[in-house]
């Protein structure tokens, strides 16, 4: 992308911009095509699933059918409890751990931080069996806590916040101490506010990951009262009797809807957060 801006031939800067915009639009359209198709199919009758007629009658029937086919209200509640409890625990634990790693000297700190980094390298899917054993020992299979617990100490969150906290100027830290701020007060009044963009970016990644997570929730849950929307949605993806795209897309839009709406609402903040929190 920077190739065009750094073009030595001054006159072709406009052309570069044009190309860049065209490229961005193209990528955007390719990215949005499945979503646009989902919206088209979900709001039209099954006979228009593969035919693009602008005059085709709109309908909400697919949503009604999908909603009735599975206890989605319960699934939504489960998903909501799941992502909020995970995020809350992650924020508290990561903040405290990151603060310790960033600002305290204690025996074994570097070894422990290395262990946290190692955890970053491991795909959670590899640990499924071991996690299952642990949950079973704690008598947690088939509970929402059981889905969330393995993810509550986030290595990624600790790493990200430690880097951010390390970037906080020492002078601010010392000034607060001179003013008589307690240790937790220091964390709360100086470090956390300065890391706000990082918190927002991390929160977005965490929520969307856990909202979309499928395999682990499928394995650890058995009943309607604990299953999140992704697992509930898989009921529609069954292929033996052929696929009814209209209902699948309606159900998919319903399940991804809350996230899409949240993103559109907070889009500006998210984008800014990502830019400011960019990997240092």
């Amino acid at each position: 992308m920077s190739g065009a801006a750094a073009n030595p031939l001054g006159g072709s800067g406009r052309l570069g911009l044009l190309l860049e915009s065209a490229g961005a639009w193209l990528l955007g359209l390719i990215w949005a095509a499945p979503l646009l198709y989902a919206i088209w199919t979900a709001f039209h009758g099954a006979e228009f699933a593969a035919r693009l007629q602008l005059a085709a009658p709109l309908t909400l029937e697919n949503f009604v059918k999908a909603w009735d086919a599975a206890p989605f209200a319960r699934y939504f509640l489960n998903s909501f409890i799941l992502v909020t409890s995970i995020l809350a625990a992650q924020l508290v634990l990561s903040t405290l751990a990151a603060f310790a790693f960033a600002r305290f000297a204690f025996v074994g700190r570097d070894v422990m931080f290395a262990l946290v980094l190692v955890q970053l390298m491991i795909m959670p899917d590899i640990l499924i069996v071991e996690n299952y054993r642990t949950m079973r020992a704690l008598a947690l299979p088939d509970t929402i806590l059981g889905i969330g617990l393995p993810y509550m100490a986030s290595a990624f969150g600790i790493f990200l916040l430690r880097q951010t906290f390390k970037g906080v100027p020492r002078e601010l830290d010392e000034a607060a101490r001179v003013e008589g701020c307690t240790l937790l007060g220091l964390l709360w009044k100086v470090y956390v506010p300065l890391a706000k963009p990082v918190y927002i970016a991390f929160g977005l990644v965490s929520v969307s990951f856990h909202w979309n997570n499928f395999l682990w929730p499928l394995i650890i849950t058995n009943s309607v009262t604990t299953r999140p929307v992704t697992v509930g949605l898989s009921v529609f993806a069954s292929t033996d009797q052929g696929i009814d795209w209209s209902i699948i897309t309606a159900a998919t839009l319903m399940t991804s809807g809350p996230l899409l709406i949240a993103f559109l609402l907070f889009q500006r903040q998210f984008v800014q957060s990502f830019m400011r929190a960019g990997i240092r």
Binding site: Y132, R133, R136, N222, V235, A237
Partner: peptide
């Protein structure tokens, strides 16, 4: 107690994991 486990391959994964996990 009937437990719906998704597609055939999801069911196999779930069963094998549960067995290895002792359940």
């Amino acid at each position: 107690k009937s437990i719906y486990a998704g597609s055939y391959s999801d069911t196999l994964t779930k069963v094998l994991t549960a067995i290895k996990g002792g359940d």
